[in-house]
């Protein structure tokens, strides 16, 4: 059970992150979702439906966190590399922040497959299973998301 939950944690976090952004609330929603999954796993009849089922639970948990207090924003995500110059590190971090901000500005239905693909490494077909949509839908949303990101990030650079 624990291994299953650990392997699924990224999926749950992606669902929460797509709704709550890079917030501590997303972490909390993930933990809450996994606890719910652990408590009601026996109710799942079709094991094949597990990814979608878990994703839905995580999404509901994230939705219930929307009223939470404003989270602390992480500072740099990674500790600065002492070997790199401060300017390079700053530019890199700033660019990454811009990219993440651009992703968060996407509509949620586009943001979800982006997280699942680029963070969790899921293929489009797997994303379709998780989201409970068709492959064509996922492909279309990804294409639009990437086009939008290219346009936005291209303008900024």
């Amino acid at each position: 059970m624990e291994d299953l939950l650990r392997a699924s944690a990224g999926l749950a976090h992606a669902a929460a992150r797509a709704r709550l952004g890079e917030t501590l609330a997303a972490d909390g929603a993930t933990a809450e979702a996994l606890a719910r999954v652990a408590g009601s796993l026996e109710k799942l009849r079709d094991p094949q439906a597990f990814p979608h089922w878990l994703y839905r639970i995580a999404a509901r948990c994230a939705a219930s966190h929307t009223g939470a207090p404003a989270p602390l924003v992480a500072l740099s995500g990674r500790e600065p590399d002492p070997r790199a110059g401060p300017s390079a590190a700053a530019e890199s971090a700033e660019r990454a922040r811009q990219v993440r901000a651009a992703v968060e500005a996407l509509p949620r239905r586009w943001r979800e497959p982006v997280y699942l693909h680029f963070v969790e490494g899921l293929a489009y077909r797997e994303i379709a299973t998780v989201l409970g949509t068709g492959l064509g839908t996922v492909s279309r949303r990804m294409r639009r998301a990437l086009d939008t990101l290219r346009a936005r990030l291209g303008e900024e650079t």
């Binding site: 624990e2 976090h13 972490d27 933990a31 606890a35 660019r95 990454a96 982006v114 680029f118």
Partner: peptide, 18 residues
Amino acid sequence: ALRARAPSEDEKTAWAHR
């Protein structure tokens, strides 16, 4: 950029364990 903010394995393990 997105994976930089993804939860670490330790965090996943802690969530699952809890």
